[in-house]
Amino acid sequence: MSASVSVTPPIPSSAPPVSLEGLPDIELTQDACPRRARQQLDLILLAIEALDLGGSEAILIVAEELDLQEIIKNRVHLWQIRSTNPLRKFSQRRPLKQVEAKSLVAIICYIARRLTVVIRQLLLVEQQLKDKGLPPEQNFRLAEYLLRFRSHFRQRMNPRRAGVMAYSEDEKLNALALQLLEQLLFCTGTAGAQRLWVSLFDGEV
């Protein structure tokens, strides 16, 4: 039997990473994601960091696991991409390219899937507390998530922007954190990445 030589066809550098397959290009006038998309992606990542102590480290590790390090190069680059969120204290004057946004979507959904159990538990507890007319802080784990989310948000968002002022009360910020938790749950699904991706452009096309 002759030895077979396996030849891996060279991947053209323009080919998108496998992890971004299934996320279609959206027709935009220029390759710059809309404001709401930039805000939403950064806030979902903030929710992940509030859920998972190693969250911000995990984002970079997962970028590598998903073969996205060409797009999300390092910590500083990730910070720049996330800081296209106009609510940030140091909002960056750069567009968020679709391929960058897709990468964030892929990373979010990958991490969300790993956090499925805790996301489901927190949402179940929240519903139970609501049914009893109790505040979400009644539950220790939920309280911890909300506290961490609030502190991340306040540390990083520009308190002088009206969009941030709207969340000056704890209750409003808690409601945002819970809404993001629900959105994270949808990210855990079979079609989570496609659903999140397409929803970023609602009302924009």
């Binding site: 949808f186 699904g189 079979t190 397409v198 009302g203 096309v205």
Partner: peptide, 27 residues
């Protein structure tokens, strides 16, 4: 429910003409 439906949509052995079709809401 969403997930059950998504699993159904990605299952090529059940009603293969039904597939996931997502579009952003237009302006």
């Amino acid at each position: 429910l969403v997930e059950a439906i998504d699993q159904f949509l990605s299952d090529r052995s059940t009603l293969p003409d039904k597939q996931l079709s997502l579009q952003p809401i237009s302006k």
